[in-house]
Design a protein around this nucleic acid. Structure first.
Lengths: 219, 219
DNA sequence: ATACTTCAGTAATCCCGATTACACGAGCGA
DNA sequence: TCGCTCGTGTAATCGGGATTACTGAAGTAT
């Protein structure tokens, strides 16, 4: 986990800033590389830090009192997260964990506020990032309330598939994304397999019939 | 449901705009009054409209295939909602219904974009509105996955209480907010009553012991 | 007052998913 | 190659809510 000043590969977020402004941004932010599995923050570390995922992937999750894990958000590049009380966002009792080697920019409220004022496009991009997160959370909420586990697993596979393959996800990972037991996820996967919708291998699932899987995801 | 141009009581959102800019805003937006119960949009009406709640209250909800209702967001004044593909937000299969007589401003993407560029404070406020909505959705998601109905009802009562009273909410309303059956909500309420945490009257609940109710809400 | 609609109380049945308890093969480090 | 850990398969039990089916009381309109 190294720390270095921002290079000249500033993310799209800062596209359009003048050289002067970029220098300013570099001065007041830091860019760090995190390895897969690194935990960026846990409840209690209530710094005022504000993070911008430049590349990689980050999971925001919570733990139940009994230790069950629920992933409430998957962030893709150019997502904002962290304590943003300055813009009405807090991290509360959440954990943030890097799920793929990532590059993350850290800044504080003051810096963000300056950016928001100087660069309307920045606000635009944050707004988009927030919008995605709202959509995702509300969709997950709806699925949780209305659908059964097999349908939710099917939907997750469709979302996470690259081509017709879903790689690198263990049953445990799937369970955590849905907030259910690993055994329950395995059962649901086996149901889908029994219906010839998918094949299951170690950390590797293949979608056999995308269309029918989509229908299964409907409930 | 009347339509009139914006008066001089523009909401905080437009605070700080020049007279010139305000005139411009008035020209391109419309302000409408909605009565409690009015439905602002339903799935299918996929206009590009973008709404700003000036006063009152609005519910965003979805229906399951069987017709069960789940309220996924409660909006308070100065919240944005609607089709905002221009800023990464969509209404998808959601309904928006006015739950208290409300005043709502309608505009389109173009207008918003102009505002965002001209007025950083506007972006700021939208960001805060979005942030609240993320928080709310993710909290509701966590509760749904981790807690039992009684705890969720307790938490809802605490959130919705004015002083120690919760008025105007039927058991049905409570059930819809949690995405459960009315009977289930009634049962949970009776449990809380049996524990002397609340008293139940027609559309009126009184909190007897806030502290213990808070503990009950923890699970 | 009377009929009607809204709200709330109650109970019985059913089913999904939580929870617990193991077994077993695959990869991996020593 | 030998263990060991990780990822997966399976089964049995239990309990919370969904779902169905009513009853009855509180407001409301006529």
């Amino acid at each position: 986990m190294s720390t270095r000043p921002n290079g000249n590969s500033a993310p799209d977020l800062f596209q359009g800033l003048s050289a002067e402004e970029l220098r300013e941004v570099e001065r007041v932010t830091s860019t760090r590389a995190f390895r897969r599995g690194a935990v960026i923050y846990t409840p209690g570390e209530t710094g005022e830090a504000l993070f911008l995922l430049r590349e990689g992937a980050v999971q925001i999750y919570r733990l139940s009192p009994e230790g069950r894990k629920l992933v409430i958000a998957h962030l893709l590049p150019f997502s904002f997260f962290g304590e943003m009380s300055c813009i009405g966002q807090g991290m509360y009792d959440t954990f943030a964990e890097v799920t793929e080697d990532s590059t993350i920019i850290t800044m504080n409220c003051e810096v963000l506020n300056r950016l928001l004022i100087q660069r309307p496009e920045v606000a635009r991009r944050i707004l988009e990032s927030f919008g995605r997160r709202i959509l995702e959370a509300e969709r997950q909420l709806e699925d949780t309330v209305f659908k059964g586990i097999p349908a939710r697993v099917a939907a997750l596979l469709l979302r996470e598939s690259t081509g017709d393959a879903v790689d690198g996800l263990t049953h445990q990972d799937i369970a955590e994304r849905l907030g259910v037991y690993r055994e329950t996820a395995t059962n649901a996967l086996n149901e889908l397999k029994a219906a010839d919708l998918i094949t299951i291998g170690r950390k590797h699932i293949t979608i056999l019939d995308r269309e029918r899987l989509r229908r299964a995801a409907e409930q």
